[in-house]
Amino acid sequence: MGVREPNITIARPWCGHCKSLVPEYKKLGELVSKDPKLSSRVVIAKCNADTHRSLGEKYGVQGFPTIKFLPRGKAPTKDNAEDYSGARNAEAFIEFLKKKVESDSSFARVDALSDIASKFAASTDKAALIKEAKVTVEGLSGDDKANGEVYIKLMEKTVEKGDDYLTKEKARLEKLLLTGSVHASKVEDMSRKTSVLGALLGEE
């Protein structure tokens, strides 16, 4: 699943309610693909419940269509798959997804570096914290290691450019992301940096 947050509909092709949802779901896919911030972090998926009965059983599906939201970074289970109970139209779906993405403050954060990050902005010995962070990152793997490298790069950049770099760079990236002019291939990387900058500034 990586960093993406799937939104899944479990349906049956012959179901009238499922059929009526198809145009809205197609419109949702188009809206997500046009929004760089969403397209880099959200996957819209549809599942045929007759063909994949085990998936419906896994998530405790009782009726059709059922719409589930699966959070990023967790192995999907019945317990963490959230039922969507809002309006069944593309506009309501997209607002739901935007709120989920915006509230995901843990995106790109590394728990093993949280103590170091919380001390960084106010520290008078940033070099020592960078050294500690490098040792910690060496022991990580997967996404945590990749994200840990981002922490180190931004920490080193702060030492190079000055303490106000964190605030200025975060504001710059957030402004660019809000314009919607950033190419989709760069949005995920910029969102990752924004989140890590927030961690280094002590933001929750």
Rank of each mutant, 00 (worst) to 15 (best):
S118L: 01
T66Y: 08
D104I: 00
A199Y: 07
M190H: 10
D163K: 11
H52D: 14
K119R: 09
R12K: 14
R88A: 01
G60K: 09
I8M: 15
S105P: 00
L154K: 07
D143S: 07
R72G: 15
A92L: 04
Y59E: 01
T158A: 11
T167F: 10
K100M: 01
K34R: 14
S191C: 13
E149H: 03
R53M: 14
K193I: 10
N147M: 05
A11M: 12
K175W: 02
P65Q: 12
K145P: 11
E24Y: 06
K186Q: 13
A45S: 15
G142L: 03
D79H: 11
M155Q: 03
K99L: 13
E156D: 13
K170C: 04
V22G: 02
Y165G: 09
L38T: 00
V110Q: 07
Y25N: 02
S114M: 04
F69G: 11
G198C: 04
G56H: 10
E102Y: 06
P65T: 07
A75D: 08
I10G: 12
F93H: 10
A199W: 03
P23K: 05
T51V: 08
D104S: 04
N7Q: 09
S114H: 03
T77W: 00
K37M: 13
E57D: 15
H183D: 09
E132Y: 00
L197E: 06
T136G: 03
S191V: 08
V182T: 12
V32P: 03
M190A: 08
E204S: 15
T124C: 07
L166I: 02
G139R: 02
I44P: 10
E188A: 15
F120N: 14
D104C: 00
D164S: 15
T77L: 06
T124Y: 07
A11G: 08
K26T: 15
Y84A: 10
T77A: 08
A75N: 08
V32K: 07
K126M: 12
S85N: 13
A133S: 04
S123E: 01
S85I: 12
D79N: 14
T124H: 10
T136S: 09
I94Y: 08
M155P: 03
G16K: 09
A146V: 14
L97K: 06
E24V: 11
T167C: 01
E30Q: 13
G56N: 10
F64P: 12
S40P: 05
E132R: 00
V196G: 03
W14N: 13
S20Q: 14
H52Q: 08
E174M: 13
I67Y: 02
R192Q: 12
S191G: 15
Y25G: 02
P36K: 00
N48F: 08
A81R: 08
